[in-house]
Amino acid sequence: MDMLAGKVKMTDQTLSANLDPADMIDHPIRLTARDVTVHYGAKQALHGISIDIPDRAVTAFIGPSGCGKSTFLRCINRMNDTIEGARVGGRIELDGQDIYAPDLDVVELRARVGMVFQKPNPFPKSIYDNVAYGPRIHGLARNKADLDEIVISSLRKAGLFEEVKDRLNEPGTGLSGGQQQRLCIARAIAVGPEVILMDEPCSALDPIATAIIEELIDELRTNYTIVIVTHSMQQAARVSQKTAFFHLGNLIEQGDTEDIFTNPVNKQTQDYIMGRIG
């Protein structure tokens, strides 16, 4: 009971520290999902997910492992397309546009909806080339100076520039785990996305690196719509404004992070937050 009390207390603190009433009021809805289902072969992984995701805020998906939160995240930039046998049903709209429409170009979609993965996955290239890769393929820079600027500003935004400015030409795989993950965030930012999806970005990192990334996420939310999947409730409470709770492929409850953590409506959400499932 003591432990639980501590947890709740901590969430309270972080929530109040993060709470900015101005943020909470009128964020326009950026993404809407209606009745999204996903099948892997014969197995159904998601059962009719409907959710609205607000602009310039952090939305956290929480839930026990295997609950479908990552699967849903991967629907938002159609990463499930790359998995053989995956079928997505329902409707997801970005700025009112159906992202599963047949005429929609998935390449263009992914340029707008970036993604950061669970395990840091820098390409086997130099730090510079890692960040420059997105702008290069999308033709975002008109010249070398443009590209340099994009790379530097992205690294700055990711809080990595000071640490790597002398070794931009060294391979990205030589960085530490936390640095690699920030490099991946810089790589995603460099394309200039409007939405950034983060799939348990800190699960492979130590607590210090995690704290740095969480700070970074908090900074980024002023410019980007961020959706983060996490299995850590503390992390959700620390960084997010909206939270959605997934369980067994269903979206159980969603709402302002504060409400979910202090006043969950659903029994299952309560149980999860109290540590009884998961």
Partner: peptide, 18 residues
Amino acid sequence: DTSLDSAAIRRQRVRAGL
């Protein structure tokens, strides 16, 4: 940032290369 931060220009450039 420079003009690149304008989402519209970015999207236009992406589209041009598609």
